[in-house]
Structures are given as structure tokens and as C-alpha cells.
Simulated scan of single mutants.
Amino acid sequence: MSQANPDQLINPQVRAQVAVLAKRFQQRDPFRHLVIDDFLDAGFAKRLLDGFPSFESGNARNEAGDLGQKSTVERVQQLGAPWLELDELVKSQSFLDFIGQLTGIESLLYDPWYFGGGTHENRNGQDLDPHVDFNRHPVEEWHRRLNLIVYLNHEWHDEWGGSLELHSDPRADDNRVSLVTPLFNRAVIFETTESSWHGFSRIDLPEQYRNLSRRSVALYFYSRDRPADELAATHSTIYVDRALPQHFIEGRTLDAADVQELRVLLKRRDQHNQRLYRDISQLTAQLEQAQRALSGGSIGRLQHLARRVYARLRR
């Protein structure tokens, strides 16, 4: 397939507003981001939706290994012609340069593995706690710089939950939240830094809309280096458990919905703790394995001899 042409697959009206959009991106409210309606060519966006994979064909297991209400497909190249067009588009140098012009971030790199990205589908009951994303590519060790999400939902309302939340700091009492409704062909581009907190509240669809799901395509972009003031130690995704809703106040009588909400919050906190304990256990096991390997080699024998000599000198 020939290389996709951004002039054909991106709405030309968007390309004509590069200077205006670039200026808007630099506003930190709460961090650098853009919301662009009608981002893709309308026909192309429709083809992506028509070719969206079934929920069952994706990875529908959460971080605890349980079947959940979220399904993802990373290898979009295997989803058919429109998705191959998308892949050709996002890896083209002209597209990378275009996103660089919008954001002021040069030398952006395409991720052929789509780690953590690809198609995302969320069903009723799913939520996503506020978090900052992993900051290095797991294979290339590139710096993760940008998220680009295109939503594919013809109908959505903020009161249903599921709208993207951009947080100033979810751990702070004065946290500010900007909502982005995930409507069809709306793109969100935002920086990936140690303060780009984002997530969405639990999806609670009205009974007559329970057949709907929240669909999007997520694209992540990288660079080989980044500004010194944005550097941080390599880390995985960092979550902040949601605080109790403001309506939980002294004297309130809990109803069935309140109890269910508390159960969800507590279960999510337990899952995060279990994941942290599991990671610590794995790191401890790896450290012990490395120590045994050192002790069994010539360096380990020299260390043992040195400790014996030192002990004798102390007598």
C-alpha cells in the first residue's frame, strides 16, 4: 500500500488552522492539550467505525487478570483496510511533522507496536482512575511525549460518565477538572508528562442506551530525548484512587447505589495495592536471584574472602 497522504485523511480545515491550534496547545489548562472536532476526513472516520473490532476479539482483561468491561486491540494493522490506512498515515513523516507543528514537539516517533494504544472500547460500568502514563517505550526506551485520541461515538452525554477528565492534580484539594465529551471524530492531543493526569468516571448509561459503548483509537508518540525539566525516572502508569464523591457527607443515609459505589471504590483500591505488592515481590525475587548469581561467581568468592579477612582483623 502506498504511503497515506495526510491531506486526504485529515480534515483540510484542521490543517489550515495549524498556527491557531499551535498557540492554543501551549495554554496549560490544566496542562498542554488540544480538542479538535472533525479531525479526520468524515468518510475515513466512518470507515474506521464501520471496521471497529468486536468487543470479544480484543483483550478484555483488566490489570488484575479478570474479565472486565474494557477491550483493546493493539495491532491495528490486522483489522482491515481502513486501519491499514490509519497505520500508513500515522507513521508517515508528513503526519509526524504535522503533529509536531501543532504541539511544538519536534522529531516525533511512531510506535509500530502500539503499546497500550490501538482500539479502546469501554462498556457500561467501566471507569478509569486518574493517572499519568508510563513514560518510556518498553522496547526502545524512547520518551513518551504525546497522546492522540480520536473518539468514534455518534451519541454521548457527560451525565453518562465516560467523558475524558483532565486533572490539574487529583491528589490536591483544589484539583481542577476539564471535561471532554467523547463525540464522533473529536480528537484530543495532550502532552505526556509527570503532571498530565487524566481518566474518566464510571460509565452509567440509561437503560435504553445500554447497547452503546465508548469507542476510540489511541495513538502514542515518542522522542529520543526530552527537555531536562521534564525528565523523570522510568515508571509504569501511576494511578490515584478516586476520592469519595462529595455527596458522602455526615448524616447521609446510604442507599443501594451508594453501597455499590463504595464497593467499587474499595475493590479498585485493593486491586491497585495487590498490583503494587506483586511488583515488589517480583523485584525482590529478581534482586535475590542477582545476589545468588554474584555470590556463586568469582566476585562473590572474593567478597566472601574479604569479609573473612576483615573479621579476623577486627578480633
Rank of each mutant, 00 (worst) to 15 (best):
L294Q: 08
V188F: 12
K23Y: 02
F190M: 14
H304R: 12
D279P: 02
L231T: 04
L84F: 08
P6W: 07
F221G: 03
H198N: 00
L231M: 05
L212D: 04
D173C: 04
D111C: 13
E288C: 04
R314K: 14
L294T: 01
A187P: 15
E74C: 07
E250G: 06
F98V: 07
D50V: 14
Y310Q: 10
S216P: 15
V150R: 06
P245K: 03
F184G: 02
S57T: 08
H154G: 04
V309I: 15
A218T: 13
L9K: 00
D7L: 09
D127L: 11
R32L: 10
I10P: 12
D29S: 11
A233K: 13
V14F: 10
L67I: 12
Q260F: 05
A243P: 13
D255Q: 05
Q101M: 05
D174F: 02
A60G: 10
D7E: 08
G100L: 10
R315H: 15
L152H: 09
F248M: 07
N5C: 05
P30F: 13
R145L: 11
T237V: 13
V14M: 07
S201V: 06
A257V: 04
T284N: 10
R210P: 14
P6E: 00
A232M: 10
P227K: 04
Q8N: 06
L108P: 14
H157L: 15
R136A: 11
Q93N: 04
L205H: 11
A22G: 09
L96K: 05
E140G: 02
L102Y: 05
L49P: 13
E88Y: 06
R145K: 13
T103V: 08
I238L: 15
V76D: 06
V20E: 12
L287Q: 14
E121F: 09
F134I: 01
Y209R: 15
L9A: 00
S201D: 15
R224L: 10
A233I: 14
V309M: 15
D158S: 07
G80V: 07
V18G: 05
A172N: 12
R123V: 00
Y310T: 02
R32P: 14
L109N: 05
G117D: 09
Q101W: 01
F39W: 12
I105L: 13
L183C: 01
S71Y: 03
K70D: 03
A233E: 14
D7H: 12
T284C: 08
L9S: 00
D7I: 02
H304P: 06
V18H: 05
A187Q: 08
R47A: 14
L313D: 06
S195I: 03
Q246T: 09
P170Y: 00
S298P: 12
L244Y: 00
L219Q: 06
L67A: 12
L205C: 13
R308W: 10
T284R: 14
V309E: 04
V35A: 02
A311G: 11
F52L: 15
L283P: 06
P245E: 01
D270L: 14
Q77W: 09
H137M: 04
P6F: 06
Q208H: 15
P138F: 09
Y220N: 10
S223F: 04
L146R: 07
P12A: 00
N11M: 10
R301S: 02
R176V: 00
F31A: 00
R226C: 05
E250T: 07
S298H: 09
L166D: 02
